[in-house]
């Protein structure tokens, strides 16, 4: 037992960097802001691809097998990871293992709807809306969860991880004031898909409605008509869509309400400007800020 433990820890204690695999690019970016050069981080879902319908490839199995830590979004967002973890047979990163990190731990979730309540709930996700990383204040919580796990896996470097995280939070804090000021007088918005409640809450944005209420089901004519009417009443300034969402539907509502279309990214790498977590939020804020 002691020997096994010793052998298990060997790779971590040595000079080799800790190998962390995250499901999404934005979690990878947050992990790097804590781990710095002490970790080698990779992600499984290619930038800009649909996280919920991702199909793992053979090499992903190898990545998980060799990982010392696995970092996931949770909240039923990356359910495909569970069979992958089972198959990889890497006890360290399995649910309950030392290297298993669920970034949604300790996040205050919005729009909580239990699974199985019935077909009349708006979002198909079982437990709360999963796009919590889009609130920069939640980045503090996510990096705390990451820090706790890294310190547990690699105790000698705990102090350095902590210093990295504090430096990141300082940068984030400085940006936060700037972002809040930029969005102070932002107009009301309509979103294509219900991706933005956390972002909206942090920056006090009003989303009048959602175009596609149930993911994958295009809107009805009367729903679009209602949105257009409410959009005009609320003087909507922009129709928000992501790069992968249909341009035509957003353009259609924009022409009906007199708003513009704003293309936002919810994921690092979905557009070239979103290189890391801070530049992702930076890009979204600039895309929404009223032009002066």
């Amino acid at each position: 037992m002691t020997i096994a433990l010793f052998l298990g820890l060997e790779g971590v204690v040595g000079a080799e960097p800790l190998r962390l695999v995250s499901t999404t690019t934005e979690l990878e970016s947050l992990a790097i802001s804590v781990g710095g050069e002490l970790i080698v981080a990779t992600h499984l879902i290619p930038a800009g691809q649909d996280a919920e319908n991702f199909q793992p490839r053979p090499q992903d199995l190898a990545r998980v097998r060799e990982a010392q830590a696995v970092l996931r979004v949770g909240v039923d967002y990356d359910l495909w990871l569970d069979p992958l973890l089972q198959q990889a047979g890497n006890a360290r990163v399995r649910r309950g293992g030392a290297g298993y990190i669920d970034a949604s731990t300790d996040i205050a979730l919005l729009d909580v709807r239990a699974g199985g309540v019935g077909p009349d709930d708006g979002h198909a996700h079982g437990r709360g809306n999963p796009h919590y990383w889009l609130d920069p204040a939640n980045a503090a919580m996510i990096t705390a969860t990451i820090l706790e796990a890294l310190a547990r896996l690699d105790p000698p470097n705990a102090k350095r991880y902590e210093a990295n995280r504090l430096a990141f939070l300082e940068r984030l804090d400085a940006k936060m004031g700037e972002w809040k000021r930029a969005l102070e007088n932002a107009p009301a918005l309509i979103a294509y898909h219900d991706t933005w409640p956390y972002f909206a809450r942090r920056f006090r944005l009003r989303f009048v409605g959602i175009v596609e209420l149930r993911p994958g089901v295009p809107p009805s004519a009367s729903h679009l008509a209602k949105l257009a009417r409410e959009g005009i009443e609320a003087r909507v300034g922009a129709i928000v869509r992501e790069p992968h969402e249909p341009a035509r539907d957003a353009q259609f509502l924009a022409s009906r309400t007199g708003a513009r279309v704003a293309v936002l990214a919810s994921s690092v790498g979905a557009i070239p400007e979103a290189r890391d977590y801070i530049s992702l939020i930076d890009y979204d804020v600039r895309a929404l800020a009223p032009s002066r």
Partner: peptide
């Protein structure tokens, strides 16, 4: 699409129309 830099897996979705929002 698997070789694409970003966002390409949705391209077919973008190419598929919706009769309701036809311009």
């Amino acid at each position: 699409v698997d070789r694409a830099p970003q966002g390409a897996e949705h391209i077919r979705q973008i190419l598929t129309g919706n009769i309701l929002t036809v311009g």
